[in-house]
Design a protein around this nucleic acid. Structure first.
Lengths: 203, 203
DNA sequence: CGTACTTTTGAATCGCATCAAATCTGGTGG
DNA sequence: CCACCAGATTTGATGCGATTCAAAAGTACG
């Protein structure tokens, strides 16, 4: 996979300085692969280009707990500040992963102010997005979640979906059936206007 | 309110360099106060010490959308990178707020590597926490959410709550009644052991 | 001692998840 | 180009579990 292509998947990659880029590896992962294990010392920072990675922990009873599900972008960013991982990372779906050597990444952040600022902004944006998502998931009705999504992620009370609705449903914490039905209802009652992947609120 | 006291509420405050600390203001807010409005130019970065702030947006129909509810710590961190706010901020509950002049904050991040690293780590921790919370809110059952919380936020399969259960319920996206009932059920069936505010998983 | 808030339990209701099944879609290979 | 397949979309029927409304008991604090 070549770098210009990667950039499309993650705007931040455009700002990675050359020194860091040159030591970054792009590897394929196969469903079931172990990326790292709890206790492993931190050697890389990762970025999902394609596929899905899950951060997992197991409780006393052996139950698997998913701490995070990542389908695009960086995960376990907090490992930048630590020395060992606090959970397991597994490939949940075959795909492609970027490996940033951790020392080189830290050096780049220290010495390159522009890259550092982009990194900080990226983290802040992620925080904003996640806080809005939590707020949304705390809403009871399916309709409320849909409207909240359009309001918080959309532009001018409209969103253009870049993923199938099934995936959107899971982001909203709804079954896809519920999402389809509620969209239809809102559309019928004139609250929403739906045109393919463009969904907008009607006053 | 004096600074040593503030530090308890937010570990990051300990690392604020003196130059920044000296220009930081601590102000009271009263329920209903406007902190900033959408479109206002960014002059301060805020930190909630006490009370509650809500970030709000309004849709075409005039409905109020809560983007974020903050009861402790920084909010709207992304304003560091921008020039104008993208939503309104209101005091939802009387309390205390820290005002960090934005230019001084940026300067501190640029020139003080230690402070900067703490800021980055703080953001990364927040991301980790929020991702886990989203994952948790996507779980269906009340029991699953409780167990996930203990697993992801606790130590050695146990948590010690620092807030009333009612507040915990809202963090879990449950009604408090549901939380009480489910805790009782899990306790009765031997899955959980509950001792005041200490709640632990039993193998 | 009283007030405000949390904790606790009960009963009724409603919405969403789930299971099932049909249709539609894009992409593959023959 | 068409047959075919995997996945997405859509609609229906059912049951469970969480919310909601109500009310009582416990607790902290001035």
């Amino acid at each position: 996979m070549d770098w210009p292509l990667l950039i499309e998947s993650q705007p931040l990659l455009k700002h990675v300085p050359n020194e860091l880029r040159h030591v970054t590896q792009c590897r394929n992962m196969t469903k079931g692969d172990t990326i790292f294990r709890i206790g492993d010392s931190v050697r890389n920072l990762f970025c999902v280009v394609k596929g899905e990675v899950q951060l997992i922990r197991h409780d006393i009873r052996g139950t698997k707990i998913v701490l995070q599900r990542s389908r695009s972008g960086f995960f376990a960013e907090a490992s930048l500040g630590g020395t060992a991982y606090h959970c397991d990372a597994l490939a949940a779906e075959t795909g492609v992963l970027l490996f940033f050597p951790i020392a080189a990444f830290r050096t780049a952040l220290d010495q390159n102010a522009a890259f550092r600022n982009v990194w900080i902004e990226q983290l802040a944006r992620e925080v904003r997005k996640l806080r809005a998502q939590c707020e949304r998931l705390n809403l009871n009705g399916a309709a409320d979640r849909i409207i909240h999504y359009i309001e918080s992620e959309g532009i001018n009370d409209a969103v253009t979906l870049k993923q199938p609705r099934k995936a959107w449903a899971s982001e909203l914490g709804l079954s896809h059936e519920s999402l389809y039905r509620t969209l239809k209802r809102l559309s019928d009652q004139g609250t929403l206007s739906i045109d393919g992947n463009k969904i907008s609120l009607v006053s």
